[in-house]
Each structure stands twice: as C-alpha cells, then as structure tokens.
Design a protein around this nucleic acid. Structure first.
Lengths: 223, 223
DNA sequence: ACATTTCTGTTGTTTTTACAACAAAAATAT
DNA sequence: ATATTTTTGTTGTAAAAACAACAGAAATGT
C-alpha cells in the first residue's frame, strides 16, 4: 500500500490544493478521506453511467477519457497525466452520471478524494474550502479551454488539416517545434477521429513533403 | 437604455446568482459594476484574441460561439441563449485570451459584469462571493459536460450518424421526440462540421426512410 | 537469442463527402 | 402585392476517407 506521506509534496503543489498551508491541506485531506489507489494498465477508473462522488487526482501514470459510440467506435476525448484530475465536472453537476469512461493506459497511481463527504460536512464551516473551490473553478476553466481546442482539432475537414492543427497546438504547448506526443498512432487516430492507416499515410506524406519529421512519438515541425 | 430593475427577477433566478438573498444580489451587482448592454444581430461581443475581464449573462436573444479555422472555414462551438453566460472559462483562467468569437444571431440583451473588479475588491471579504463561486463552479461543470457531448456529436463518422446523434441528444434534452432545434441548416452544418448541401440531402433521405420527419426547425424522431 | 505479440506503414478498392451549380421555397423589404 | 434576398433541397462530379489486407519494424515475453 502506497503511503500518502510519500506524495505529500506533489499533492501540495497540485492545482487542486495549490496555495494552501500545510495545516489547511492536512485538514482537507482528512475531510476528503483521502486515500491512494493503484490501478493497473487498462483498468477502468470510471465507467459510462457511473454516479460520481469522488474526485481523482493522478499522482503518476496516464489515463484516457473515452466514449464508445453506438457502433463500437472508440472516441478519445482527452489524455490525462500527472497532476491532472478526473471527474471534476461530474461531481460539480449534481446527480449527473458520467458520460465517459476513464481508462488507464499504464500503471497509474491515483489520489481518491470523497468530494461529497467533504462538502456535506464542512461546506460552510471551513475557510480552506474557499481556497479549494477557487482552485477547482480555475481547473475547470482550463479544462474547458482545452476541450474547445480539442473541438478545433477534430473540426478540421481533412486528415492533413487535423494533423497539422493538432501538431501546431502541441508545439505551442511545448514552446518548441520539437516535441513528444502522448499518443501512439491508434490512439491519435481515435483522438482525431480518423482511420489509423489513412492517418499514417498522411503522416508520411507530410514528411516526404518536408513539412514535418518524426520517428515514433517524437515530432518536429519544419520551416 | 434598458433598466436593470426590469430584469431583476430574471437575474435573481439565473444560475450565476441562484440561491442569493436580495441583499446579497444587490451588493454583488454593485460590486460587479453591473450594467445592461444591447447588441444588434451579427455583432461581436467577444473576438478571438481579446483579453476577457467581464462575464456576460444573456438576458434575451441568442449568441453563437464560433472559431475561424485557417482557411476561413467557420466552426460553431455552441449556441447560447437566455440565462446562459459567456466567457466564464476565460476569466477563470488568468491571462488567457479568448480563443473564440461570440457573435449575436439576433438582437441580444446582455448583463455585463466586471469580474476582475469584483474579485480584487472583495474576494476575501464578502460572504456572497462564496455562493457566487460555488455557482460558477457548477455552471462550468455543466458547460464542460455539454462540450463533451458536442465532441460526441461531431465525432461520429458519417453525416447520418452525426445527425442522428445530434437529434437524439436534442430529444433527450427536450424530454420528447418532437422538438425545435436552434440552428438553421447552415449553422447546423457548421456545428456538425459537414457540408450543408450534403447534410440537407442526408436529412431528406432520413425522412424518406421514415426515421425522422421535419419541417423548418421542427424535428420529430420516429419509432 | 528466439518466438510472439503489438505497432506502424503501404497499397488498392469502395464508400462517403465536399464542392459547385442550380431550382424551389420561404422570408424580407418596398 | 411584387420584387429581392435568404434559405433550403437536389443533382452530378471530383476529392478524400474508410476499410481491408498485408508486410515490416519494434516491443515484449520466455
């Protein structure tokens, strides 16, 4: 069993608890009944239809937010990693069940926080709750903006445009034209909503034309 | 000039100010330096690149959240109406400029709230701010979930699937198989990211096959 | 080191879409 | 009421994507 103490510093600096004193953080972690849970690769943390009462903070590893469409096609909404959190929007909207799956893509360590428990106990009592809700508001804002960017990515009309938009956005995020992407080919295809083989073909075409170079997960935008 | 008082009840019951006493609301409106502004059809309330320091609450009318892609193609992210608000995620993320346009689709009345002004003055002082930030958190949660749904809509592979997913989701929202949609054909095409004429063709095919009926903006899902 | 599995790239064929051009219908202006 | 503009539906053609099938490369297990 992993110990909370080992991750104390990381938790303290995560966006959820950012700006809190040690005392506030300790109190809040108790109030949340915080515990660490380990998931193996390909495990489901959340399934479509679940009622969500916990917030999950990823301490280490990676998680896909996915949705299965009618005819079994997989849609990847986003890829989350260290210090990201899951399920925030579903605990924020009362009595709404999850519309997505959260699936680990590698062994993943998660801090589980009982959101309901905490809010019902001390919503109006504790001052630290105010800092928390402010943080959560900011986190959701960012998520929102990222979802809009995802919509931009998948809303391009050709595979080429989707790829170039996605890669440009990644370059911006990394402040460099040379960067690693988090997806493998199949996942990237499911994220951009295109056929993998057609996407691979387009990637090598882009490379031949000298617009990009890549090998495995490392990409570089040229010119 | 429209008077704030005329819309007092509506404002009081809007999600932003929900659950506040009259006193709290009045104080907060002052603190926000609230004023009403009228926009004509096709006016831009927000443009891509703007630094956002106001929250906008739509009192009456309709607004498209749009984005122009490289080659001038229009992407409609969402359509907002009465009691919805604009720009929340951009004031929530500090120092982030708007990645979208907000354009009125008809004459629109908006309550403008100076978010920055209020938070800097009384963030830690007033109790009403706590109710407010809680409300904002919930609103953002809902927006988040709706963005995910939009991603689901546009992530279907065929025009037919996009239409059926969109229409099914609208039917769910309206708790009925018979409902009006907010978009005209061109806007719907830009929302679903497809060619308008191809979409029109697919709509009539769906009608001929007996899956849906429609006339103008009224749709009905059959069986 | 070898066998096995997973991932990636390539190609040809079929399906779907975008695009363009136009006609009909509806809405708006005069 | 009539003219004008906007919206919607229809069709044919060209472009793009999905799909399927497979080969080579890379990663993994033993």
């Amino acid at each position: 069993m992993e110990k909370l103490e080992n991750y104390y510093n990381q938790i303290k600096n995560s966006p959820v608890f950012f700006g809190m004193s040690d005392d506030e953080l300790k109190g809040l972690l108790e109030c949340f009944n915080a515990r660490i849970r380990k998931y193996e690769k390909d495990e489901m943390i959340i399934r479509q239809g679940d009622m969500i009462s916990n917030i999950y903070l990823i301490l280490d590893g990676g998680v896909n937010i996915e949705k299965d469409s009618y005819w079994g096609r997989r849609i990847i909404i986003s890829r989350l990693g260290k210090n990201d959190n899951l399920a925030l929007s579903f605990v924020g909207s009362k009595d709404v069940e999850s519309s997505v799956d959260a699936i680990t893509v590698e062994d993943t360590l998660v801090l589980v926080l009982r959101y309901e428990k905490c809010t019902s106990m001390c919503q109006n009592a504790c001052t630290r709750h105010k800092v928390l809700i402010n943080n959560l508001f900011q986190i959701l804002s960012k998520e929102n903006i990222e979802l809009i960017q995802k919509i931009e990515n998948v809303s391009q009309k050709t595979i080429r445009d989707k790829l170039m938009t996605y890669l440009s956005n990644e370059a911006m995020k990394n402040h460099s034209n040379s960067f690693d992407i988090q997806f493998n080919r199949q996942d990237l295809a499911d994220y951009l909503n295109v056929d993998r083989s057609a996407m691979s073909f387009e990637l090598s075409k882009l490379q031949k034309e000298g617009l990009i170079t890549y090998s495995k997960n490392h990409f570089e935008l040229l010119s």
